Computed example of a mutant assay.
Amino acid sequence: MAQGSPQPSSSALRALALEYKSLQEEPVEGFRVKLANDENLFCWEVALFGPPHTLYEGGYFKAHLNFPSDYPYSPPTVKFLSKVWHPNVYENGDLCISILHAPIDDPQSGELPCERWNPTQNVRTILLSVISLLNEPNTFSPANVDASVMYRRWKESKGKDKEYENIIR
Rank of each mutant, 00 (worst) to 15 (best):
Gly30Lys: 07
Phe31Tyr: 14
Phe31Glu: 07
Arg32Tyr: 05
Val33Asp: 05
Lys34Asp: 01
Lys34Pro: 01
Ala36Ile: 08
Asp38Ala: 04
Leu41Cys: 00
Glu45Trp: 00
Val46Thr: 08
Ala47Asp: 15
Ala47Arg: 14
Leu48Ala: 10
Leu48His: 09
Gly50Glu: 14
Pro51Gly: 11
Thr54Asp: 13
Thr54Val: 11
Leu55Cys: 04
Tyr56Cys: 10
Glu57Asn: 13
Glu57Asp: 03
Gly58Ser: 15
Tyr60Lys: 12
Tyr60Val: 11
Ala63Glu: 04
His64Cys: 15
Leu65Met: 15
Pro68Tyr: 12
Pro68His: 08
Pro68Arg: 07
Asp70Lys: 14
Pro72Val: 06
Pro72Thr: 00
Tyr73Asn: 11
Ser74Ile: 03
Pro75Ile: 01
Pro75Gln: 02
Pro76Asp: 10
Val78Leu: 09
Val78Ala: 06
Phe80Asn: 02
Phe80Ala: 03
Leu81Lys: 09
Leu81Asn: 07
Ser82Glu: 12
Lys83Arg: 13
Val84Lys: 12
Trp85Gly: 07
Trp85Phe: 12
His86Gly: 06
Pro87His: 01
Val89Gln: 09
Tyr90Phe: 13
Glu91Gly: 05
Asn92Ile: 12
Asn92Ala: 03
Gly93Asn: 07
Gly93Ala: 04
Leu95Gly: 02
Leu95Val: 09
Cys96Phe: 03
Ser98Ile: 04
Ile99Val: 15
Leu100Gln: 05
Ala102Pro: 04
Ala102Phe: 04
Pro103Met: 15
Pro103Tyr: 10
Pro103Ile: 11
Ile104Cys: 13
Asp105Val: 12
Asp105Thr: 15
Asp106Arg: 11
Asp106Trp: 02
Pro107Phe: 07
Pro107Asn: 09
Gly110Val: 15
